[in-house]
């Protein structure tokens, strides 16, 4: 469904992605783990056309997207929940959700989808009129995921959804990612530093170091891998 082929991405003269190749198949949950500065967020931004690759190719459902503007990529159903949530601070919860539907034509089903995300995260329903910027970190993460769901993604890209959250909330969010994958048949590409939980949730994983993909395997095997254990699982 998503293919990256020898992708190189630069920030000025600094090369952040060094010839990476990644595949995500329809229906899967695939995780990308790696240390700080490895290039995980850059990978997602490259897929979305925010930091387009200098060389290499990216395909989504067979369509080359590496030269497409971001809004066209989003229109194909590739929706990202970025690092740091990026909630619109002076828009209400409802307005933030509405921004998620920006490219949708089927305006009739929007209310149904709002009900759906309020059902997933009842706290958001209570906060519907509150400004996004005043929500707690956990609530903002729930809103960020909900906003992405409002776009009806085919492939949901999540960048460290567990960052800075309490263990209980992390558990809840991971359960909901699983639920979205199973109920909505949404494919998920999950960037995480929380390798243990990410690998338990995912079908397959990639390990990234310094802009390179150094390892890829089923999540089960990665959990047993000595290298992964010592570097990312703290075992």
């Amino acid at each position: 469904m998503l293919e990256l082929r020898n992708v190189d991405t630069y920030y000025g003269n600094i090369q952040a992605l060094k010839g990476i190749s990644i595949d995500v198949n329809e229906g899967e949950i695939v995780t990308l783990i790696g240390a700080n500065g490895a290039g995980k967020s850059t990978t997602l931004m490259t897929v979305c056309g925010v930091t387009p690759p200098r060389s290499g190719e990216v395909y989504f459902m067979g369509t080359p997207i590496h030269q497409m503007p971001t809004e066209k990529i989003v229109a194909l159903g590739l929706v990202q929940v970025p690092e740091g949530r990026r909630i619109f601070p002076t828009m209400s919860v409802l307005e933030n959700l509405e921004m998620g539907t920006f490219l949708r034509r089927d305006k009739n089903d929007i209310q149904k989808d709002i009900d759906y995300v309020f059902d997933l995260f009842p706290i958001l329903a209570q906060r519907r009129s509150q400004m996004g910027g005043t929500l707690s970190g956990g609530e903002q993460q729930m809103l960020a995921i909900s906003r992405a769901l409002m776009a009806r993604p085919r492939l949901l890209l999540l960048d460290e959804p567990s960052l800075g959250l309490a263990p209980l909330i992390i558990k809840q969010i991971f359960e909901i990612i699983k639920k979205i994958n199973q109920e909505q048949k949404t494919t998920v590409f999950l960037v995480e530093q929380n390798a243990n939980q990410a690998l338990k949730l995912a079908d397959r994983g990639y390990v990234m170091e310094n802009g390179h993909i150094t390892l890829t395997d089923t999540a089960e095997n990665l959990l047993d891998n000595e290298q992964v254990k010592s570097a990312y699982l703290g075992l």
């Binding site: 925010v50 970025p82 619109f88 998620g100 920006f102 490219l103």
Partner: peptide, 8 residues
């Protein structure tokens, strides 16, 4: 950036 990511 977020505006672009919702398709603006």
């Amino acid at each position: 950036v977020m505006a672009r990511l919702v398709g603006v």
